[in-house]
Simulated assay, not measured.
Amino acid sequence: MSDTIPYLREAYIAQLAVRRASLLTSKISEEHLQKGISKEDKSPVTIGDFGAQAIVINSILKNFPNDEVVGEEDSTLIKEKGIKDAIFQHIKAIQSKDQPFTEQLGHLTDGDEVCDIIDRGNSKGGRSGRIWALDPIDGTKGFLRGDQYAVCLALIVDGEVKVGVVGCPNLPHDLAKTSGPRGGLFTAVKGQGSYFQDLHKDVIYPFTKGERLSVKNEFDVSQARVVEGVEKGHSAHGLQGLIKQKLGIVQPSVNLDSQVKYCAVSKGDAEIYLRLPRVVDYQEKIWDHAAGYLLVNESGGKVSDMYGNDLDFGYGRTLNSQGVIAATSTTHAKIIKVIKSIVGENGEKLEEFCKK
């Protein structure tokens, strides 16, 4: 591995792991939809979440055994539901399909090992050391309906995000052409830019040989395209509507699940991602933002909380801030100014727009 690109090995292993986990989640999603299981049945999500987390953590610890992982899941529910063998069978099938990369990623051997590995995602985070933040399936409802979701992984070193990789199995290569090719692998390394490649092709090494991404900083706010979450419970859509009105944004928003929204901004398919809190004291989880944060920043954009402050990934498993704004550098300051004009410089009026 070349020494000229920092964190090159970490990025490559993360790409391979996220790609393998994305293959697993795609398999489970397709089988779930083919069988016609009701959307209320959470078993496909459970198996997909746990299987993806096991694959990624096992891959990370094989290569970087002293690193920590902040994972969303633990094995308690697996043991309660007695699904460890079902999860392992899906993992076994993907390991076989992805066998050429066993040397790099290793392989899991049974359901008990799956549980043990999943429980290694118990890091509390913090400001020192190497800590990986993992969301095995970001966008649960999108996953269930065969729509947008993502497998998200980021390396945080001494509180600073250094590597971010996002696998988007269902994302069109061009958001404006939904009938075209789908499936993207997004990679960013601090100081090296953000890159895109087809998720279904062999991982490009080094990642810098992929398609370099750049936000549309030439677009004024009047031309901006906005992406927002699908689920009303995840963001204050009423406040966001007022912000868009005051900014004079005329194009209708595109609603997408998961960190796919960060990917759309980094790729130039949108200029603004708004996520405003519905509960005043809600704290975002680091695994929901770390990889996407780096993707947008490294593609020439800016990500902050709703008051313009940088996000703090060294606080712990959560972000000690309110809201998230990801945007082009052209529009970001204008968005923050409008937000403050509505909720106050320090959020004095935010409670008016939130649940208590």
Results as ranks from 00 to 15, higher is better:
S2N: 14
D3V: 10
I5T: 10
R9P: 05
R9T: 14
I13R: 03
A14E: 06
A17K: 01
V18P: 11
V18I: 14
A21H: 02
S26R: 12
E30L: 08
E31G: 06
K39W: 11
D41L: 05
P44L: 04
N58Y: 08
I60A: 00
D67S: 13
E73K: 07
T76S: 13
D85L: 00
Q89E: 15
A93C: 06
Q95T: 03
S96H: 12
D98R: 00
L105H: 00
L108G: 02
C115E: 12
C115Y: 04
D116R: 12
R120D: 09
S123E: 07
G125N: 09
G126P: 02
A133P: 02
D135P: 00
D135R: 00
G139D: 01
T140G: 10
G142A: 01
I156D: 07
D158A: 03
G159V: 02
G159D: 01
V165T: 09
G167C: 06
P169S: 01
D174P: 12
A176H: 12
R182T: 12
G183W: 05
G184R: 11
K190R: 15
Q192V: 04
Y195N: 08
F196D: 10
Q197F: 03
D198C: 10
D202V: 05
I204F: 01
Y205F: 15
F207E: 05
K209C: 03
E211A: 09
V215C: 03
F219A: 15
D220C: 10
E231L: 10
K232Y: 10
G233F: 08
S235N: 14
Q240T: 11
G241Q: 08
L247W: 07
I249K: 01
D257M: 06
V260K: 00
V260C: 09
K261T: 08
K261C: 05
A264F: 02
V265Y: 04
V265W: 03
S266V: 02
L274C: 02
L276I: 07
L276T: 15
L276S: 15
Y282D: 14
Q283L: 10
Q283F: 12
A291G: 03
G292D: 02
N297T: 13
N297A: 13
V303H: 07
V303R: 05
G308K: 00
N309H: 13
L311W: 06
D312L: 07
D312F: 08
Y315V: 10
T318G: 09
S329H: 13
K334Q: 15
K334C: 05
I335D: 02
K340H: 07
K340M: 06
S341D: 14
V343P: 01
G344E: 08
G344P: 08
K349N: 15
L350I: 04
C354K: 03
C354G: 03
